[in-house]
Structure formats: C-alpha cells, structure tokens
Design a protein around this nucleic acid. Structure first.
Lengths: 116, 116
DNA sequence: CCGTATCCCTCAGGATACTG
DNA sequence: CAGTATCCTGAGGGATACGG
C-alpha cells in the first residue's frame, strides 16, 4: 500500500479524518475507552445528541470495525457498545490531538478574536 | 489543565477537530510543512480544490493563527502562505493520526466491505 | 497570478413523535 | 430501553464566470 498519496481522496488520512472529524465519533470513542457502555448511558454522557444521530454514529463506527454492538435478550432490553482492539488503538493518536488542543486552543481562540 | 470537558461544545478537542476535520485544512497543513508555498502551487498539489474553497480554507487557517499570508508587490503578483509556529506544532499530532491511518486503513476498508 | 462573485445542491445533523 | 420514522434546515462545498 502506498503511504504517500495524501492528496488522493482515498488516502488513509482522508478516510480516518472523515470518520473522527464528524460531530460525535470522537466523543463516543472517548466515552468507550473507559469500558463498555449502553445506549442510554452514552446519550447521557454525550450532551445534545439525539437518538437518531447517535445510532447513525454507532452504526458507522461498527461498520468500520471500531466498536462492537452486543444485544442482551433481557427485559428491559440492554445493548452494550464497546471498543474493538482497533478502536482502542485509535485512542493514542486521538489523545495526541486532544493534548495539543488543550495546550493551544487558547491561542487559537485569541487569534480568532483578533481577526474579527 | 482540565481534560474532562470533552463534552462541552466549546471544548478544545471539538474546536481543533472542527478545523482539521474539514475537507482541505489537513492537506494544506501537510503541503506547508515543507516550507512556504504560493497560491497556485497549492492548487496544483491539492487536486480538485476550487480557488474559492482554497481561499476559504486559507483564510480560516489564517484567522486561527495557523498560517501567514504574505503579499509581494510584484508583477505578476505573488502571494506566499507559510505555517506559523503554531501551525508547525500541529504537525506532530497530525502525523500521529496519519501514521495510525496508514497502518490501519486496510482493516477499516475490509471491515467496511464485509458489512455492506 | 490571485483571487471574487454567483448560483446551486447535497447531506450531515437536528426536532419531534412514535414503537417493539 | 433502545431504538425508527419523518420532516426540515443550513452550512460546506462545487461549477462557472469574471475582475484587479
């Protein structure tokens, strides 16, 4: 696989950025790093996400092999989402971005204000 | 530093992800890591970007203090874009994501195919 | 060469309501 | 509890043409 074609729309970085760059995926990832979590709990921890969109996000992440979905045949129903190994391995790079963000967001916001 | 407000819409990670998660910013960053570059050269290296959108992207990055824009009063006109120190410092985390992407995109695409 | 000016259009995401 | 089912809005981004 060629690793240099960052300008190809199908390049690895594009694919990954399209996933973690959406509005909720990164948040789901960070929620699940601590361990499996069920649907409603995810909704609570991630403020402002509607069930439809949360489902969409989880389905997409499942399709990409980042999370698993396990249904327990109980009453009331219980569905647990968990990170796969692949999902867990993504946490490292994400944490790097998060750390940079925390350290530099102040400068960005100040710069944004100045140019307004 | 508080690392717990990841669920606030104004949280650092959100702000940064909204920037580098858009369609062209990451590509511009990767272009400029090698040194300053002028507008048309950027257009050429980044395939498929229209001048309007490239300008939008560059203006946004300039606003956020990631790039500088220097106009040379020449004929024909010349405009060079370069990364600021802040912009350069973002390359580390981005490279971490890119490396992960290159190593794991195969698995993602395979998983995507299986679930289709 | 380096953009702006328009127009257009898709689609991610939100609001709301309902169900197995 | 864990989702679907609809409907809708807006912002990001593309096509094309023109201007300093």
């Amino acid at each position: 696989m060629d690793t240099g074609d960052v300008f190809d729309p199908n390049c690895p970085t594009r694919v990954v950025l399209d996933r973690i760059g959406d509005k909720w995926s990164a948040l789901v990832l960070l929620c699940l790093v601590g361990g499996p979590m069920r649907f409603t709990k995810l909704r609570e921890r991630i403020g402002g996400v509607t069930p439809k969109v949360l489902t969409q996000t989880l389905r997409a992440m499942e399709q990409d092999g980042l999370v698993t979905r396990e249904v327990f045949a109980e009453v009331p129903p219980r569905v647990e989402y968990a990170l796969t190994d692949l999902g867990h391995s993504l946490h490292g790079p994400m944490a790097a971005v998060a750390t940079w963000a925390e350290q530099n967001v102040g400068q960005i916001l100040r710069s944004r204000e100045m140019h307004s």
